[in-house]
Design a protein around this nucleic acid. Sequence first.
DNA 1: CTATGCACTAGTACAAGAGC
DNA 2: GCTCTTGTACTAGTGCATAG
Length: 290
Amino acid sequence: MDCVQLRIPPLPQLLTVGHSRWTVGMQHFERIFQVYDLLMVFDGTLHMSENGIPYSINAGELLLLEPGLSHVGHLPCTETTDIYWVHFKHDAPCQKMPVKQVAWSTRIREGTDYDLTPAEQFLYLPKYGSFEIETLKKVLDDMLRLRQTLTMEYAVDMQVLFGRLLTVLQSGLRMERKGSRSYLVANKVMTYLRAHLANPFHAGRMAEELHFDEDYSARCLRKHTGMSPMKYHHMLRMEEAKQLLIYSDRSLREIADIIGYTDYNYFTRIFKRTIGVTPSMFRQASAQYM
DNA sequence: CTATGCACTAGTACAAGAGC
DNA sequence: GCTCTTGTACTAGTGCATAG
């Protein structure tokens, strides 16, 4: 896997973050962009070319488009495609290199009272490849939420979140270096569970569709998330439920139904066990901060 | 890495009741 | 009457040990 090396400080500057669902037939227009455009796909497949090199970005994969190059969607989407993007600016020139050449253990010289400029440091971001869905999604959603009500008071918070995003992406590169097969299997399980959020969880069916033994895939997921597939499935549903409780006025019964619980009594029980408070208490508490 | 067997835990459905 | 919580019993899924 290749990565992009950026000289820091200063850190890249965030321009904007966004999220959209592309429908079948949509295709990116041609352009030469003067800033970095990080595309992350959570569902479906996005087809993008950079200077004539075609990339098919599947669910759980990202592509970092570099400034000054020609970008175009060389094929239309063939299924509904869930995309997040982040535009950022970085004035220092970048260098592309294989991840295995990154000297992760190189010590950075400590600063002294006599230094007027910081020691040479670098940030590494993946060019194209898979990412850790859960962690990245959480940071991106936090950024989007904050963007909706961004004031000077929270400007620094947004920069901190962007820094967190860069950290997660770089951590992913170190994971990639390990070439962990179990990580790839776990990622497939996470993608599957997210895509089947509203459906009842059935380990056998999942194993059949992913072509892995159900016990093996569960082990891989547990290794990287600490959760069994069913727990992970509940966790995803609870995250969705939290959003609906905060940002909608739907009843618990409706919310339970939307996220796939036929028995809303059961939903409230799971919610309390996972989050620590009942759904109604959570909604009341959230309302105080809105 | 993958498969199997078994004990146990967690998921699920139904019912009842509390609070507004 | 509606919304939400809690009790209970049955079932399916999970964790763990073991082996190929």
